[in-house]
């Protein structure tokens, strides 16, 4: 079975795709910080930030429908939290905060989606690693990415095996079986972890994670740094006056 829901469009070859992951991580993080620290009534700044990230979306050639679908996955969670704000804060202030949370999270989510859908997952990890992210976290994420699909496949197979012997009815018993499948999945994952560790040990792994630096900044990365940071800095400074 094939799954690529995490970085489906990461194999396109646009300008944004070709950038060094570090450049994207740093600039997008900066973008998110700038957006979050914008004053609530500064709608013009929000529009300007939206314009900047729209340019990135446009340049990346990732289909708009895909981008918005991804946003839609996250927005309900934000909405769930934000919906109580107008009630907690009486008067028009509550609604201002509500819209603020919505706009800021929308822009921030857009930036993260751009980061994840224009960068292959292993490159993204490499980028984080070179930015001195803890290696143990990187490794955990790498394992997650490698094995999540296998676990999903395993769950599907168990489900299929159940369905092939399931003739309907007995609702309560079905719940029990689902619980069994979950438990079994846990045990299998645990045992696989043990085998993976054995195969790592067999190749000389002793707890120290050694990796290679394969990323190099090129001219286009620098140009992106300057243009992107320049644009958002201008918006920020301009909004301060």
């Amino acid at each position: 079975m094939k799954h690529d829901f995490l970085d489906k469009y990461s194999k396109l070859g646009s300008v944004i795709h070709k950038l060094d992951p570090r450049a994207k991580i740093i600039t997008f993080l900066l973008f998110i910080i700038f957006v979050i620290t914008t004053a609530p009534h500064d709608y013009l700044s929000f529009a300007a930030y939206a314009a900047v990230i729209s340019i990135v979306v446009f340049l990346s050639k990732v289909p708009l429908s895909y981008v918005f679908k991804r946003v839609l996955v996250i927005i309900p969670f934000v909405l769930l939290v934000a919906i109580f704000l107008p009630f907690a804060n009486k008067g028009p202030e509550g609604w201002t905060i509500f819209w603020n949370v919505m706009i800021k999270s929308f822009l921030a989510v857009l930036a993260t989606i751009m980061l994840s859908s224009t960068t292959k997952f292993h490159k993204l990890l490499k980028g984080f690693e070179l930015l001195k992210f803890p290696k143990i976290m990187i490794m955990m994420l790498a394992f997650m990415y490698r094995y999540v699909f296998i676990l999903v496949d395993e769950a599907h197979r168990m489900e299929r095996a159940r369905d092939s012997r399931y003739f309907g009815g007995e609702y309560l018993r079905q719940i029990k079986i689902v619980c069994n499948i979950i438990g079994l999945l846990f045990i299998r994952a645990y045992e696989r972890g043990e085998r993976v560790y054995q195969s790592m040990s067999a190749r000389g792994f002793d707890g120290n994670i050694i990796t290679m630096n394969e990323l190099k900044y090129v001219k286009s990365d620098m140009i992106f740094y300057i243009i992107f940071t320049g644009m958002i800095l201008t918006i920020k400074i301009w909004s301060l006056f």
Partner: peptide, 21 residues
Amino acid sequence: EDQLFSPTVFEDVSFGPLNMK
């Protein structure tokens, strides 16, 4: 699936040599 645990083939094949320093 137990032997190949890295995100890419290169990282998997280079895992041993890297551990050999």
